[in-house]
Design a protein around this nucleic acid. Structure first.
Lengths: 146, 146
DNA sequence: CTCTCAAATAAGAATAATTCTAACTTACGC
DNA sequence: GCGTAAGTTAGAATTATTCTTATTTGAGAG
């Protein structure tokens, strides 16, 4: 009964403590992009004795092991998500704070093209669209792969 | 002998104090994207008595008046630049820390297109390319409009 | 199964960028 | 020149995150 993160911890040679199991469970079950504080609240519901330091350290360790990913959407704190195979970008709903993920091949091509014009190779990038729901609902609302 | 920023302060109904003139001068003369600390150092060379609080407050006020723009390149602090008429994105040189500006019309179209798929209108966006200089210099090094 | 010890944890102190507070000062319209 | 709202100063406060130190524990070796 062990989740993806626990297995990856093992593979990375990380000890599996009770606290890490708790954090792994919370991260695995999150469908949003929670902040450290939100994660802490969810963790304390499972284990009220867990320490905030432990959460932060674990988040750092998990990120260094490429098991999770942190994002800075300019809110003054970081948000976290389980690392996915294929990288993706984010659209942040300015009204609700919800985050949608997308990945557009044209964007990948374009960024490489632009960098090449300057004589650079892109190592990583950050594309964030801060947006509000369309007033008129007649926009083609297409289904998006998760 | 007054610079663009001083005129814009006047237009915005902001008092023109000695400190603001100093900050305006430093911002106007900057060709890079300095941090608050770097700006503070440059300001104190002109006026050693200027306060860091004043710099921060002034930066906030100037940004609210759309006279300058702050950016967060994930370094733990903000960088500032004088607001330009046309918005642009940034390519950050991971080796030197230099910042290059670019604006590609395809990118603008693409971001609107992507947002529309989700039923959103883009209010603002953030596109940052973190890159390293190309090893082989035979990449097509095209002229880039400023 | 238990011993060992490097790795992990808890609690709170420390850090660092930025903002706030409260008392003093100044720009600028009249 | 005057009055006053806006600005400045110095340092305290804030806030997310990291560090420190003493204590605990997972998990491999025997």
């Amino acid at each position: 009964m062990q989740n993806q993160i626990e297995q990856k911890c093992r593979d990375a040679g990380l000890k599996l403590t009770g606290q890490r199991r708790t954090i792994a469970k919370v991260l695995t079950e999150a469908t949003d992009h929670p902040s450290a504080n939100e994660l802490f609240q969810r963790c304390t519901e499972i284990d009220p004795k867990i320490s905030l330091s432990t959460l932060y350290r674990t988040l750092r360790v998990l990120e260094e092991a490429r098991i999770i990913q942190s994002h800075d959407f300019g809110e003054g704190y970081a948000r976290f998500e389980v690392a996915k195979e294929e990288p993706h970008d984010h659209l942040i709903d300015l009204v609700s704070g919800d985050v949608h993920e997308f990945n557009h091949p044209d964007l990948e091509r374009l960024k490489q093209f632009i960098a090449k014009e300057f004589g650079y190779d892109v190592v990583r990038h950050r594309v964030e669209l801060y947006a509000i729901p369309m007033k008129s609902p007649q926009g083609k609302r297409r289904r998006v792969r998760s």
